[in-house]
Amino acid sequence: MDVFMKGLSKAKEGVVAAAEKTKQGVAEAAGKTKEGVLYVGSKTKEGVVHGVATVAEKTKEQVTNVGGAVVTGVTAVAQKTVEGAGSIAAATGFVKKDQLGKNEEGAPQEGILEDMPVDPDNEAYEMPSEEGYQDYEPEA
């Protein structure tokens, strides 16, 4: 019985440690998101679009440190934060509304985080759909 109880105690310690790591990862992701939003706020009209992409990228980098179902929630929060940063930029006159959601080359930025393969159960990952990809044929 002692062996059984000791095993359960060790398992509990492992769960607590994993929860603490997840909590730490979420806190880091939130900190990076805040950094990115402050970065966007300090940019001029020309830099705002690039700044919004930076927020998304920093958040995406930190999301990889967070495991399990938390990833889905962090990704949703990050996307809403990026959308909010863009709205703030438009409201303050840093950028025109028609410039939001495009990178410096004018290509749409939507789907940055949505296409990231995420499995809350950590069982399997699927690649994003290939609808947006084109076949590449090298020139002879």
Score class of each variant (00 low, 15 high):
106 G>S: 14
51 G>F: 11
3 V>P: 00
31 G>W: 13
134 Q>D: 09
16 V>C: 11
82 V>N: 03
91 A>I: 05
92 T>S: 07
29 A>K: 05
119 D>N: 06
44 T>E: 00
7 G>S: 15
65 N>Y: 12
65 N>L: 08
64 T>C: 11
10 K>M: 14
107 A>W: 09
87 S>P: 06
14 G>A: 15
136 Y>I: 09
53 A>V: 10
51 G>N: 06
40 V>R: 01
27 A>L: 13
76 A>G: 05
74 V>K: 01
134 Q>F: 05
106 G>K: 07
125 Y>M: 03
50 H>V: 03
54 T>F: 13
52 V>S: 02
77 V>N: 01
35 E>W: 13
46 E>G: 10
86 G>K: 09
35 E>V: 06
85 A>P: 03
108 P>Q: 12
14 G>D: 02
106 G>L: 05
49 V>G: 04
9 S>F: 11
12 K>Q: 05
17 A>R: 07
21 K>F: 12
36 G>P: 01
133 Y>W: 09
74 V>M: 15
20 E>H: 14
20 E>P: 00
107 A>C: 05
86 G>A: 07
138 P>I: 04
21 K>S: 07
88 I>K: 03
47 G>N: 10
17 A>G: 04
89 A>E: 03
129 S>E: 09
6 K>V: 03
80 K>T: 04
58 K>E: 01
82 V>W: 13
85 A>Q: 03
8 L>Q: 00
122 N>I: 08
80 K>E: 02
29 A>Q: 02
124 A>F: 13
96 K>L: 12
56 A>C: 12
91 A>E: 05
89 A>V: 14
80 K>I: 06
68 G>C: 04
36 G>D: 02
2 D>H: 08
52 V>K: 01
67 G>W: 09
135 D>P: 04
51 G>E: 01
96 K>V: 13
108 P>R: 09
38 L>P: 00
138 P>S: 10
72 T>F: 03
53 A>S: 12
13 E>R: 07
105 E>C: 03
100 L>V: 12
63 V>R: 03
28 E>G: 03
29 A>S: 02
118 V>H: 07
89 A>P: 03
71 V>M: 14
84 G>L: 12
33 T>P: 00
68 G>K: 10
27 A>G: 04
126 E>V: 10
69 A>W: 12
138 P>L: 05
31 G>P: 00
83 E>R: 05
67 G>H: 08
103 N>D: 12
60 K>Y: 08
32 K>G: 01
14 G>C: 12
69 A>S: 06
85 A>F: 12
119 D>T: 11
113 L>D: 14
48 V>G: 01
106 G>F: 12
24 Q>P: 00
57 E>Q: 06
17 A>D: 02
29 A>M: 13
68 G>F: 12
91 A>D: 04
35 E>R: 10
44 T>Q: 01
70 V>E: 01
38 L>G: 02
1 M>E: 00
112 I>S: 09
20 E>C: 12
129 S>H: 06
68 G>H: 12
73 G>K: 12
107 A>L: 12
101 G>Q: 09
117 P>A: 05
31 G>K: 11
103 N>V: 13
9 S>A: 04
58 K>D: 01
130 E>R: 05
57 E>M: 06
89 A>D: 03
102 K>I: 09
16 V>S: 08
6 K>P: 00
55 V>G: 01
2 D>S: 02
121 D>Y: 12
35 E>P: 01
91 A>Q: 08
104 E>W: 05
73 G>Q: 11
118 V>R: 10
74 V>R: 01
75 T>F: 11
60 K>T: 06
132 G>W: 11
90 A>P: 03
120 P>K: 07
123 E>L: 10
129 S>D: 10
37 V>M: 09
117 P>L: 03
122 N>C: 06
4 F>V: 02
1 M>C: 00
9 S>R: 10
120 P>I: 07
12 K>T: 13
139 E>G: 06
51 G>Q: 09
91 A>Y: 13
114 E>Y: 11
79 Q>K: 10
105 E>M: 10
127 M>Y: 12
66 V>I: 15
